[in-house]
Amino acid sequence: MSDIDYLNDPLLQTAEERPKAARASIVELAGEALSRINAFVEQTGDKPVSTSGKSVRERMLANELAGLRASRSELADLESADIHGLVFDTPRSQNALDDPLLSGADEIFQVRDSLKPKAQPDYVADRQPCHDFDRFRPAFDMVRQSVEQGSRTPQPFHQEKVELGEFFILKGQLVHVADVRDEHRRNDKPDARLRVIFDNETESNLLMSSLVRRLYEDKDARRIGLTNAGPLFDGAHTGFVYVLRSRSERPEVRGLLKVGTTASAVEDRVARAETQAAFLFAPVEIIETYKLIGYSAKEAERQLHAVLRPYHVALRVTGPDGRTYGATEWFRTDTHTIAQAVKRCFTRT
């Protein structure tokens, strides 16, 4: 007689009768993802980033990191394993406008080469503390007061672009467009790099197209128009005029100076010069800076460029993506001429 127990032999059990493998908990899965991210940081010395040009592995790890940050309230048991402070030491940003999963970068796997290539961001914008929020605080207070008093009525958002000085309500937060930089066309539509200030004293340098998309996605978003920013900042420090020299080795750049304005620190403005067409995709050297008092940075730039128009030189530069870009703020002149132009345009600098 056979020794096989036909009633209890696991090979003869039906699917319903076989013991089910224990499923890993959410915390265990998150712990495995955090271990992979920690290993990447130890190997490369930097956190994973999900942008064009990065490896598939790094972009997948960046997306896992974004998921861990979004779910950190449920993963308190993993805080001790976050040895690089990438998840729990990062400021919370529940209303973040530039989560890597929503940044508009291409899919990780590109399988249809015949499609028209999409414009890629030069980098993914992040929220960070606004260190000069005190100079924007009066404008925020004024807008809140005018809305409460009924003198200014928030309107539904129906725009293709935003303007310098405008205020919006996004996800319950008051948002101010403090600066508009590097205007260009993206996917055949006007776009620009913005400096956006939030009423929780943070800021972001996201693209105009990103802000417009978030405003359309939020059904409760509202516009509080205020394009004339001058009176809000009368007598206040509103930015800088900067004079730069490119470190590019291109012969046509020799002897040229770049003149522009910024509402933030000049060092912050040029920190990513090698990734931006406006700086010819090359590092730059800061030659001179002038502090603006009471002038909108954008309007100040228009006035200054109009005075310097006789010295203007239009440049074309090819970016890392193979596309050609225009660079419009370069002038063949000297620092003395620029100083006289600044003095002519602005009585308070």
Score class of each variant (00 low, 15 high):
292 L>P: 00
245 R>T: 09
310 P>H: 11
342 V>R: 00
90 T>M: 09
243 V>R: 11
271 A>E: 10
53 G>P: 03
51 T>R: 14
165 G>Q: 01
222 R>V: 02
106 D>P: 04
35 S>P: 01
230 G>R: 12
63 N>S: 12
160 E>S: 12
91 P>N: 07
38 N>D: 04
22 A>G: 11
333 T>G: 07
98 D>P: 01
171 K>L: 08
161 K>G: 10
46 D>E: 15
97 L>G: 12
173 Q>K: 15
307 V>I: 15
22 A>P: 01
206 L>D: 03
229 A>D: 02
233 F>I: 06
251 P>E: 14
48 P>T: 08
137 R>F: 04
308 L>H: 12
33 A>M: 06
154 P>C: 04
26 I>L: 14
119 A>R: 14
324 T>H: 13
161 K>F: 13
208 M>C: 12
228 N>H: 05
259 V>L: 01
201 E>L: 08
174 L>V: 02
28 E>A: 13
101 L>S: 12
10 P>F: 01
56 V>S: 14
196 V>Y: 04
216 Y>E: 03
221 A>I: 05
171 K>V: 01
22 A>D: 06
289 T>R: 06
287 I>V: 13
150 G>K: 05
109 F>E: 14
329 E>R: 11
72 R>G: 06
93 S>C: 09
255 G>M: 11
29 L>G: 10
170 L>P: 00
108 I>S: 03
307 V>L: 14
343 K>L: 09
254 R>A: 15
333 T>A: 05
202 T>C: 05
6 Y>Q: 02
184 H>W: 08
346 F>P: 09
293 I>P: 01
120 Q>D: 13
124 V>N: 10
172 G>M: 04
207 L>W: 04
140 F>S: 04
281 F>R: 10
216 Y>C: 03
88 F>V: 11
344 R>H: 09
117 P>A: 12
9 D>F: 04
246 S>W: 07
